[in-house]
Design a protein around this nucleic acid. Structure first.
Lengths: 189, 189
DNA sequence: AAGAACGTACAGAAAAAACTGTACGAAATT
DNA sequence: AATTTCGTACAGTTTTTTCTGTACGTTCTT
């Protein structure tokens, strides 16, 4: 009985600290386009001593299993958590990807890359079409002026997305760590 | 009358192309944590030939002036649009920041930086507290093991956020453009 | 000084997103 | 083959966000 009491005391102490961290992580997860509660779930998995099942998550989060299922899938899509195999258990087990650098680069590769490429495609197509209008209305100086301005803007946008694409390349290839090393440079004087 | 007809035809042609681009931009703006319609507003401003007033935006977007006001403020906070001064007019005028590289780096400086710093602060504090628990329960091997694991995780997290902080520094200083130039490297063989 | 035009605070309505419970198909166990 | 256990699709509910109209303070105009 008194043993339990000690355990409760210990648990409460560590739980309090964990909780604050989990909530901080959860709150800031909106940068990744993730809802607060899914971020919270991520925080939970971050501290879990072992891979968790959906039921365990639901119990800890005091939420339905359905929500856990959709939350985990969101995190899985972003490769923020991994599915873990464990013989014996026929439940699905999940744990966070502890390599946060990897998580960061994956995020850009998954979310941003998709936008970048679709944007470049649409923009290029639009440049072509405006070019066609340019020849079609070449004797209309007022209108061609308008078109020229738009085309110039679109070209700049394409150039920017090209840059973004190359930036994401350096994330994915790990080249970025040459410019910004994981270990901060030690000041030597 | 026939002149008007020509104008309509031209306008319709350019409008169709613009519309598609605007919608593409708007759709992808969720990466910046911006709602679709505010993204749409951004797209509108992108093509505007001149700085626009709230009333003009409302007319084009077919939305209330209030919405324009809040939308513009969101974009202003992210420095995606700028307030423009024009003597004579006493209305507020806005135009997009056409330097998208600047917009990109500002975004990280504004949104991510805030998260990074608050996270580092909370995490450090939590490491301290867990360290205190470590000495308090030093004769409880099972519990200290738990604490040690948590502390290790927290240290890794702090290291990651430190890296992120330095990465954002390179965005802000423009150093990133040394690694990833705005002009793509020309292949010379 | 009075009036008009502007931007936004605020409260309520509309729309979107998150969450839950039930139901069901798939896979493992008996 | 029957039964149990699992994960998720789906419909309905709750919560959150977005949008609108009115009202009001401020700043120009007259």
């Amino acid at each position: 009985m008194s043993l339990d009491q000690f355990e409760d005391e210990r648990d409460a102490a560590i739980h309090k600290v964990r909780k604050r961290v989990i909530e901080t992580i959860g709150r800031n997860m909106d940068l990744y386009g993730i809802s607060q509660s899914t971020g919270h779930l991520y925080g939970l998995l971050f501290f879990a001593d072992k891979p968790m099942t959906l039921d365990e998550m639901g119990r800890e989060m005091k939420m339905s299993k359905t929500s856990m299922s959709t939350g985990v899938r969101t995190l899985l899509d972003l490769k923020m958590v991994n599915k873990v195999w464990e013989k014996g258990s026929r439940k699905d087990l999940y744990e966070v990807e502890y390599d946060w650098y990897q998580t960061f680069t994956d995020f850009f590769d998954i979310k941003w890359r998709k936008s970048v490429e679709s944007n470049i495609q649409i923009l290029s197509k639009s440049i072509d079409e405006m070019g066609r209008l340019l020849t079609e209305y070449e004797h209309d100086p007022e209108f061609t002026e308008l078109l020229r301005k738009d085309i110039a803007k679109l070209h700049e946008a394409v150039a920017y997305y090209g840059w973004l694409d190359r930036l994401i390349d350096t994330f994915e290839s790990g080249e970025i760590f040459k410019l910004v090393p994981k270990e901060p440079p030690t000041p030597h004087n």
